[in-house]
């Protein structure tokens, strides 16, 4: 009996030691990255490419967990239901911010914390060269006699919000034509059905280089290194039109700060490796896409405010 209690006491001590060391030993189990989009899409490919090196940096396995539906709402309710121990990350895009702003998400903007940005692809306003338009002012002016046919993705999505925010702040008249995907927007801009569109650099590059598309302005704070002659919308005197196809990872804000900091450090180190950088240049981006918590978290919040306002003006917010 005595021997047994001694063994039991020993085992209890051991167990206590084990749990304490487990707590300090973070990460201790595979890291899960929750996404909202189907396998093979941009978000999925970005997350998977990011994880190739991140696994090695973190020293544990990492995998992508797809939870489709509700414009990210299903992914958000899944991720927010997991323990806030830093083993669950969520890859977010402007779609999630829109779902939050429309009041359809189980969580609000104040419940998340940005960890690292993985892509930042500002929207460029381009026109078909056959329109003869060469500057943003000309576009605004000519739209007043007949609204400019402007292509983008789903109504209520980021392209729509960007186009309408631009229209509101510049006075341009925009007839927004929604399409299923980026490919259809480009073919219709090329074929002359559309006069203008908000495109990412990777989508517009072929048309710009062949001279079929004319880039007028960039919806970002700074010019793009690859398009040094194209001004930002802000330079032309129209403020607060900053929209970008951004992707990045977040955690719930209850995750301990030291764990969040460790995640930030390791993920950024992983993304600075050649594998991820080659992916970035393949989609027409550069190393400036990758940014830490400070920049990324502020960007999420600025974009959220813009989205919230424009959705209200479009009557698409409750």
């Amino acid at each position: 009996m005595k021997t047994f209690s001694r063994i039991a006491a020993g085992a209890m001590i051991l167990a206590t030691v084990a749990t304490t060391s487990m707590a300090e030993d973070y990460p201790s189990q595979p890291i899960e990255v929750v996404t909202h989009a189907s396998a093979g899409g941009g978000t999925d490919t970005t997350a998977r490419t990011m994880l190739i090196r991140a696994r090695r940096e973190l020293g544990v396995d990492a995998f992508v967990q797809i939870k489709k539906g509700g414009g990210g709402a299903v992914a958000m309710s899944y991720a927010s239901g997991k323990a806030a121990d830093g083993h669950t990350l969520m890859a977010i895009t402007p779609t999630h911010l829109i779902t939050m702003a429309r009041g359809r998400a189980p969580i609000g903007i104040d419940e998340i914390k940005g960890i690292a940005r993985s892509t930042d692809d500002p929207i460029i306003i381009v026109v078909n060269k056959d329109t003869g338009i060469e500057s943003l002012e000309q576009l605004i002016e000519s739209s007043k006699s007949s609204p400019v046919k402007w292509g983008g993705t789903q109504a209520g999505g980021i392209d729509h919000i960007a186009a309408m925010t631009f229209a509101n702040k510049s006075g341009a008249k925009v007839a927004y034509v929604p399409f299923d995907g980026g490919g259809a927007i480009i073919t219709n801009l090329m074929g002359g059905n559309l006069q203008a569109a908000g495109l990412n650099y990777g989508e517009a590059v072929d048309g710009i280089e062949s001279g079929d598309f004319v880039p007028l302005a960039i919806m970002a704070q700074e010019r793009l290194a690859i398009l040094p002659d194209t001004p930002t919308v802000g330079e032309l005197g129209i403020d607060g039109v900053n929209f970008s196809t951004v992707r990045g990872v977040i955690v719930m804000k209850d995750v301990p700060a030291d764990r969040a900091a460790l995640l930030e450090e390791k993920l950024i180190k992983g993304m600075s490796h050649g594998t991820y950088q080659a992916y970035l240049s393949g989609i027409g981006l550069d190393a400036s896409s990758v940014a830490g918590s400070e920049v990324w978290d502020a960007q999420i919040r600025e974009m959220y405010d813009n989205i919230y306002t424009t959705l209200g003006e479009l009557g698409l917010r409750k």
């Binding site: 941009g42 995907g181 490919g183 393949g282």
Partner: peptide, 21 residues
């Protein structure tokens, strides 16, 4: 560079990963 189907879109992504445009 315009995907003709969902799978073609993923193959397009594959070309991009290899730095091809």
């Amino acid at each position: 560079g315009i995907p003709g189907s969902a799978t073609a879109a993923v193959i397009l992504g594959g070309l991009q990963i290899h730095g091809l445009r």
